[in-house]
Amino acid sequence: FIDQHRAALIARVTNVEWLLDALYGKVLTDEQYQAVRAEPTNPSKMRKLFSFTPAWNWTCKDLLLQALRESQSYLVEDLER
C-alpha cells in the first residue's frame, strides 16, 4: 500500500507531525526524525520520509500504514477504493 500509493500520500497527507511522532523510536531514528521535521512543507516532509523507506521491511511499512489509518483514515479509505 505504502509503495503503491507513494505519490498520493506525498501530495495528500496533512498531519505529518503526528506520523513522525508515531514512528519515532520504532522506525525512525532521532536523526531521521529531525531531518523530516526540518523540511518546510508537508509534501517535502513526506518525500523525506519516503527517502528512508527503501531500507524498511514490511513491518516498518505496516507501522506507517497503521499510523496513517489512525491519523488520516479518510485518506486511507479513499486510496483503498
Rank of each mutant, 00 (worst) to 15 (best):
W58C: 14
A8Q: 13
V16C: 09
L75T: 01
L49I: 08
E31D: 12
K26G: 07
L9P: 04
V13E: 06
Y24Q: 11
N42Y: 01
S73M: 10
S44W: 06
V36P: 01
A67D: 00
A55H: 14
T59H: 14
Q66E: 12
A38S: 13
V76T: 06
L68I: 14
A55T: 13
N15R: 09
L20V: 08
Q72D: 15
W58D: 15
V16Y: 00
R47Q: 13
W18Q: 15
Y33Q: 06
Y33G: 04
P54G: 14
R6D: 04
R6P: 04
E31Q: 09
V76Q: 00
E80F: 07
L28R: 01
Q72I: 00
P43T: 14
V36D: 03
C60Y: 10
A35R: 07
F50A: 03
A35G: 07
R69N: 06
P54V: 11
Y24T: 05
A35E: 13
W58K: 15
L49H: 04
G25Y: 06
M46K: 02
R69W: 04
E70D: 12
N15M: 02
E31H: 02
L75S: 04
A35Y: 02
L75R: 06
K61G: 05
G25N: 05
W58T: 15
N42Q: 07
P43N: 11
K26V: 13
L64E: 00
E70P: 06
L49S: 02
S44H: 10
I2M: 11
Q72N: 15
A8G: 06
S71P: 03
V76E: 02
L63S: 05
A55E: 15
Y74H: 14
E17N: 10
M46A: 04
R37D: 11
F50C: 01
E80K: 03
K26Y: 04
R6C: 03
A22D: 10
L28S: 02
E31R: 11
A35N: 02
A55R: 12
K45C: 01
R12V: 02
K26P: 09
L23S: 01
V76C: 07
K26M: 06
F1R: 07
K48E: 00
D30A: 12
R6A: 13
S44K: 10
F1A: 01
Y24C: 09
K61P: 02
D3N: 05
T59R: 15
S51R: 02
A8K: 07
E17F: 00
L63T: 09
T59F: 14
R37Y: 12
R69M: 07
S71I: 02
L23Q: 03
W56Q: 05
Q66I: 12
V27F: 08
W18F: 15
L79F: 04
D78R: 10
S71R: 06
D3K: 02
R69H: 07
D62R: 11
R47C: 12
P43H: 11
R6W: 11
S71D: 07
Q72P: 00
L19I: 12
N15G: 05
R47H: 08
E31L: 07
Q72T: 04
Q66G: 09
L23G: 01
T53P: 00
Q72G: 05
N57K: 07
A67Y: 11
W58Y: 15
Q66C: 07
Q4N: 13
L79Q: 04
F50M: 15
Q34E: 13
A8Y: 11
V76L: 10
Q32W: 01
N15E: 12
A22S: 13
V27R: 01
N42L: 09
A55G: 15
S73R: 14
R47W: 07
C60Q: 15
L65S: 07
L9N: 03
Y74M: 13
F1G: 00
R12A: 04
W18K: 15
F52M: 08
A22V: 07
D62L: 08
L64R: 03
D78S: 12
E17M: 07
L68V: 06
V13F: 07
H5N: 12
E31N: 09
Y33A: 13
T53Q: 05
K48P: 04
W18C: 14
L75K: 00
K45H: 00
F52L: 08
E31A: 11
D78C: 12
C60G: 15
K61T: 04
H5L: 13
R6V: 08
H5W: 09
E39A: 07
S51H: 02
L19G: 02
S51T: 12
Y33H: 03
V13S: 06
L49E: 00
L64A: 09
S71C: 08
V16E: 01
I2T: 11
R6S: 09
L19P: 03
G25L: 08
G25W: 09
E39L: 10
L28T: 01
G25T: 02
L20G: 01
F50P: 05
P43Y: 06
L28N: 02
D21G: 09
T59K: 14
N15S: 07
E77W: 08
W56E: 00
V36M: 02
D62F: 11
K45R: 10
E80A: 10
A38L: 12
E17P: 04
A55D: 13
K45A: 05
E70K: 12
V16D: 03
R69F: 05
P54D: 15
K61N: 07
K26S: 13
R37T: 12
A7H: 12
N57V: 08
K45L: 01
A8W: 03
N15T: 07
A38C: 10
V27Q: 05
R47A: 14
D3C: 02
D3R: 06
A38V: 08
E77S: 10
L23W: 00
A7P: 08
